[in-house]
Write a protein that binds this DNA or RNA. Structure first.
Lengths: 213, 213
DNA sequence: GTGTTAAGTGAACATATGTACACTATAATG
DNA sequence: CATTATAGTGTACATATGTTCACTTAACAC
């Protein structure tokens, strides 16, 4: 008999909690100086407090866990960016505002970003590919945003993507330093200011990009 | 008795070769979809073809091997950059020339760069710290270069470092895509052009950085 | 030559890993 | 209430790991 309806769920949603706990365990382990593919299945179940065999009730292997975690992380990130876009900054200093809210968001979800950043270059090809495609999505979204702010006629899609890629790249590196290097608030302020200046410089370049044909 | 002179070496320099072979083995293994801290000591010795115990004749543990590999990789990279600086580009199109020679260099030493990029976020804190300090060195060197090309009076050291960091960051991301994503020459050309445009845009921004006080 | 020292071997160990299988408990469904 | 599918347990096994120790080998210094 094939179940076409909903899956069975406990009253207290225990299975879902365990699933989430497995995600959390991976994030927790990675926040303790480990790359994703150096984390063993048994370590994860140990962290959660379940039997190693129980892992297979939720994922066929660690790689699948990783892939789902990528999607999950990007989904929340994309939702946040959507919210930010929904009420755009009125202030004259758009860059300052944007960078600051983004930095706060990163610092509020450090483990998710740490996971993404490490898995992006660290692990298996399938996971890297997934992150790469999510990254491209972000670039596209930003470039359509930028299209609205710049002279749409003179900027080609490729140029806009080049610009968006540069901006996201700069922010990615800021995030890396924010999370991996050191976490005292002194350097956080410095990094925020660094990000602001770098983005401002990029925008300045963009404003003069089509000065001489 | 303490040896103050040279160490004993075989006629055919075998010990040195083995040491190098251990480095090579790590690079080779990392080029096959693995982060540094997911590589076992036994894997490395297996790749070289020696007994696991023999590893300890050369390094106390994998971490030390990693640290030395970082230094080695950056030493050759820094030497290359020094050579490039020695005969500066005469051409009007400095950016194009610089990017193209750098991309060729990266493609000629893919495994070293792959190692650096992966170890930078992947592994143990000590290795990350070592890469971070080497990175800062590169930024400093570039910023003194830039000081010569820009109006030295109006640019502060911090601003120069901000600019250098942005440029190196952009190139780092290009290297990542060059090595990790895909390696067909079609995308290589596209990435080279992307790098050129991004650097040009950054320089454009830098030229107008002090327009309005 | 003889002795010394560095490099490499082979076997052994305690421990960790992924996965399989039979099992128990429990929540939802009929 | 009886059935059933899901989540989790316990055990087991083959395999992999880091590290140790006693050993062989071979190059160089004398």
């Amino acid at each position: 008999m094939i179940h076409s309806g909903k899956k069975h769920r406990r009253k207290d949603n225990k299975p879902i909690d365990t699933r989430q706990a497995l995600f959390d365990a991976v994030l927790e382990l990675m926040s303790r100086d480990k790359s994703f593919d150096a984390i063993s299945l048994r370590e994860v179940t140990r962290e959660v407090g379940i039997n190693p065999s129980a892992f297979y009730r939720h994922f066929p292997d660690m790689n699948s866990l990783g892939l789902e975690l990528v999607n999950l992380s990007f989904k929340t990130l994309r939702q946040h960016l959507k919210d930010v876009r929904a009420n755009p900054v009125q202030d004259a200093n758009v860059v300052r505002e944007s960078v600051e809210t983004f930095v706060s968001y990163v610092l509020a979800h450090p483990r998710q970003f740490q996971f993404i950043i490490r898995a992006q270059v660290g692990g298996a090809a399938s996971i890297r590919a997934e992150i790469e495609s999510e990254h491209r999505l972000l670039v596209s979204e930003l470039s359509t945003d930028l299209a609205r702010r710049f002279d749409a006629a003179s900027w080609s899609t490729e140029e806009l993507q080049m610009l968006a890629d540069l901006m996201i790249g700069a922010m990615t590196r800021i995030v890396e330093q924010l999370l991996i290097e050191n976490r005292h608030s002194a350097s956080q302020a410095a990094l925020t200011e660094l990000a602001e200046k770098q983005l401002q410089l990029i925008l300045l370049g963009a404003m003069h990009w089509h000065d001489q044909p």
